[in-house]
Design a protein around this nucleic acid. Structure first.
Lengths: 245, 245
DNA sequence: ACATTAATCTCGATG
DNA sequence: CATCGAGGTTAATGT
C-alpha cells in the first residue's frame, strides 16, 4: 500500500479483503476510485448487455458515475450515469462491483476474477471549462453584425418559441419579411433542414402568413442531400462558421 | 515502483523523470496509461477550450484515445479521439502530456504541476460486447411477427434507400398500400416525425404515387408535440418497444 | 474520405 | 418530472 498526503492511495495485486476495504473507504470519503483486473461485466436497464472475461479499467466517481474502459475507444464499453449507488462485495471467489439506480431501474455488475490495481484519488476541481467555437458563439457573431447573413437583416428575437420548438434567431429582412434562422456550428445534413422547415411551418400557422416567411439555414456548409431538400422546401442557405478564436 | 507479472506497473508521487520513463515505456508497449495530479488542460481543434488548475485523472489508450476526467460527470471534461499520437515531456517545471492528430488538426495539452500517480496496464480483451434492446432488435421483432404492427402487414424490404435516406422497414398493408415504417427504440419527439415524413415524401416522388403511401412511426411512446405533428402530416403511430430480454 | 443515422447517447436549460 | 436541442457528440455502416 502506498499513501501520500491523504490524497492518493493505491494497492497493487491486492487481496480481495484489502481491496474491498480501500474501495469502500474511498467511496465513503467521496474520492474517485479506480480498479484494474480481469472481469466480466453485466448491464441491465434501458437495454441489456453482457461482456465476457477480459482486462478492463473501472472508474467509480463520487457523483455516482461508473465507467468501464477497454484498451480501445473513446467511449466506455459499459457505464452507469451519475446518481448511482456503488457497492462492493466478495461473492463466490469474485470481487464484485455493483452500481445501481432507480427511474429507470438499472444495474451494472462487474465481477473481477483477479485484481492487479486499486486506486483512491482525492479530487478537488473547482475550475470550469471555458469553451469557444460553439453554436452560441456563432449566434453572437451574427447578432454583432447581422449583415453577415444578408444586407439589412434585422434580428428581432433569439430563442423565440413556436409550437415546434424554439427558433435560434427570429428577424426581418430588408423588405420587412419574417425570417427564421437556424444555426449549426458545423456542416449539416438533412436533419437540420427538417428542423428549420418545422419551425417555418409552425411559425406560419402561428402568424397565419406562411407564404411570406423565409427560412435561413446558417452553417459552414451543407451536404448534397441537404441542399436538395432546401431547394424542395424553398429554404435558403448562408455559409458562415463560428468565430475562430 | 511496483511491478507484477509484466502486466501492471505503478508509481506513487513520482518525480517527472521517472514518470516520463514509465509513461513512454507504457505507450511504446501498447499499454493503457493513467496519470493523476494537479494540471491545466488546453484544447484546440474543432473548437477551443481551456481549463485552469485542478486535480484530474488522465487515461491514454493504446489506440490513441485520451481522456481527462474530473470528479463529476460521465463524460470526460476534455478528450482526444482514437488515432492520436501521445507524447510526454518536461517543460518549464511542468510534466506535459500532448495528444495530437491531423484531419482535423487537433491538439490536447495537459500540463501537470504535480503528479501523485502514474499507472501502466497491459490490457488483453478479445471479448465482444453483446447488447440487446436496440433498434435492430425491434426490427427483428417486427419481421418475426409483422402482425405486431397491424393485421396482414407484409414487410418487403429493410433499409430500402430513397433520395432522403434509408427506410427502416418498407412494406404493404392489407389493402396493398405502400407502408413506410420508421423505428425508434425509445420515446420520440418531433425530429423522428420529420424523419418519417421525409422518407414518405421522397418515396412518393420516387413512385409517383404519394397519396397512397402510409407512414408508420413505431416507438414505445411519443411526446405531445410529436403526436400533433403526426396528425398534421397524416402519419400514424404504433406503440411497440424492443423485446425485454 | 464523406454521408447518414443510432445511441443504455450525455448534458444543460426550461416549463 | 418530462421535453427539447446542442454536442469538440461518438460509433457504425455504407459509398
Amino acid at each position: 500500500m502506498t499513501t501520500h498526503g491523504d490524497a492518493t492511495e493505491t494497492l497493487s495485486d491486492p487481496d480481495f479483503d484489502a481491496a474491498g476495504d480501500l474501495v469502500e473507504r474511498g467511496i465513503d470519503a467521496g474520492a474517485l476510485v479506480t480498479l484494474f483486473g480481469r472481469c466480466r461485466v453485466d448491464y441491465d436497464g434501458r437495454a441489456t448487455s453482457t461482456l465476457g472475461p477480459g482486462d478492463r479499467h473501472v472508474m467509480l466517481k463520487p457523483d455516482g458515475a461508473a465507467l468501464v474502459h477497454t484498451d480501445e475507444g473513446q467511449q466506455p464499453v459499459n457505464w452507469q450515469p451519475p446518481g448511482c449507488e456503488h457497492a462492493v462485495r466478495v461473492v463466490d471467489g469474485e470481487f464484485v462491483v455493483e452500481s445501481e439506480r432507480s427511474s429507470p431501474d438499472e444495474l451494472l455488475s462487474i465481477a473481477f476474477e483477479s485484481l492487479s490495481h486499486v486506486g483512491v484519488f482525492d479530487v478537488t476541481d473547482a475550475t470550469d471549462l471555458s469553451l469557444t467555437g460553439t453554436e452560441e458563439d456563432l449566434r453572437e457573431r451574427i447578432l454583432d453584425d447581422p449583415d453577415l447573413l444578408e444586407p439589412a437583416f434585422t434580428p428581432l428575437a433569439t430563442e423565440r418559441s413556436t409550437p415546434a420548438g424554439a427558433i435560434d434567431i427570429y428577424g426581418e429582412d430588408a423588405d420587412g419579411r419574417t425570417v427564421v434562422v437556424e444555426l449549426k456550428r458545423r456542416r449539416v445534413g438533412p436533419d437540420a433542414v427538417g428542423q428549420l422547415d418545422r419551425y417555418v411551418q409552425a411559425l406560419g400557422r402561428d402568424l397565419h402568413d406562411e407564404a411570406e416567411i423565409r427560412g435561413l439555414l446558417v452553417a459552414p456548409s451543407v451536404t448534397d442531400r441537404a441542399r436538395e431538400l432546401l431547394a424542395q422546401k424553398g429554404l435558403e442557405f448562408v455559409s458562415l462558421a463560428p468565430p475562430e478564436e
